[in-house]
């Protein structure tokens, strides 16, 4: 049900601009909406991050994934159990760039068992999540050519590498295929794996379908309709240079559908689980070194008025019995 509603929502986001542009509302979808989306995204994203960053981390609670640094002759794991900022930096690099925690699932093979085939499902989650995220990044970088003149060198490199197989005309980007594979897998998991379906909500299906919509309209534009790239770039440059205007040459409605979906993503982003992009950098179990035995970690709302049940009160309670048992006491009876 949740998946179906999400699908309808995405479909609407494609159909509305498609029809709207036909009715001469190109400027609304090509200029006004993108500005709104960018503003909401930037303000929303910043506010969420600031809100998180401002919340205190009262305690130093890293999840330690390896040997602590204790005695000099015991080898510690500086990245899985960092004791300083350098270690945390490496831990975060591994986490963010390699999805270290998702990769963690080791599986042991036993001699008495037969040969095993294929990835266990955890590893497949790691693999396809990694594929999706990297393709998404690559595609974002490639799109910079629409927003920059002259196009910077790294963007050219990204394009070149992405189309290195030289298949088809226009040349096919591998990332387009791979991102479909990645998204397809992530969606299929949600739909077909009973365990994951059970925990999935509308806000899990919607972004996946939204991204799929973006990729599919993008692929459609590039490989099927073969839209006028010059005109699209004119529109895009107009937006980034703050001189927005509609290009003279007509642009295929699929471009507006693509653009609207992207805007929807931008608007949706700050209010959704997609904020995990920012949240991972602030997660107290990961970005904090395991140092609270070594040095002081300060809790801003520490309440100094909380005192232990005092020894004096304890001794008052049990003094006679303590004396009888030969235990030393501070005050004589």
């Amino acid at each position: 049900m949740a998946a179906f509603y999400s699908f309808l929502a995405v479909l609407a986001l494609i159909v509305i601009p498609w029809l709207g542009v036909g009715m001469g509302m190109g400027a609304l979808f090509g200029i006004v909406l993108p500005y709104i989306a960018i503003i909401i995204f930037m303000v929303g994203f910043t506010m969420r991050i600031v809100d998180w960053a401002k919340s205190p981390v009262p305690f130093c609670i890293p999840t330690t994934g390896g040997q602590q640094k204790s005695l000099p002759w015991i080898k510690n794991s500086p990245w899985d159990n960092p004791y300083d900022k350098k270690g945390v930096f490496m831990r975060m690099v591994l986490e963010v760039l390699c999805f270290r925690s998702l990769f963690r699932n080791t599986s042991v093979k036993l001699q008495q068992e037969g040969p095993k085939v294929g990835y266990s499902s955890e590893k497949s989650l790691w693999l396809f999540a990694l594929i999706f995220h990297y393709c998404f990044l690559l595609i974002l970088v490639r799109h910079l050519r629409f927003f920059m003149a002259p196009v910077p060198y790294p963007v050219h490199i990204a394009e070149f590498m992405d189309s290195i197989l030289q298949i088809g005309l226009p040349v096919m980007y591998q990332s387009d295929v791979l991102i479909l594979v990645g998204l397809g897998f992530l969606l299929a998991r949600r739909v077909f794996d009973g365990k994951v379906r059970y925990i999935s909500l509308m806000q899990d299906y919607f972004p996946l379908l939204l991204l799929l919509g973006i990729v599919v309209t993008g692929v459609w534009m590039r490989y099927v309709v073969k839209v006028d790239v010059i005109a699209v770039k004119e529109l895009a440059m107009g937006i980034v240079t703050l001189h927005p205007h509609m290009p003279k040459a007509a642009i295929d409605p699929s471009v507006y559908a693509h653009l609207t979906l992207v805007c929807a993503l931008f608007i949706y982003f700050p209010f959704s689980k997609l904020m995990h992009m920012g949240g991972v950098f602030l997660s107290p179990t990961r970005v904090v070194p395991n140092m609270s035995r070594r040095a002081m970690w300060v809790n801003p709302w520490n309440d100094p008025s909380i005192k232990p049940h005092s020894y004096a009160a304890y001794e008052d309670d049990f003094r006679e019995k303590m004396i009888e048992a030969g235990l030393p006491v501070d005050k004589k009876a």
Partner: peptide, 16 residues
């Protein structure tokens, strides 16, 4: 239950 069955069906290693 259904989602429990999914977990236990997995030909995982015997300790997981």
């Amino acid at each position: 239950s259904e989602n429990t069955a999914v977990l236990w069906k997995k030909r995982d290693d015997p300790f997981a």
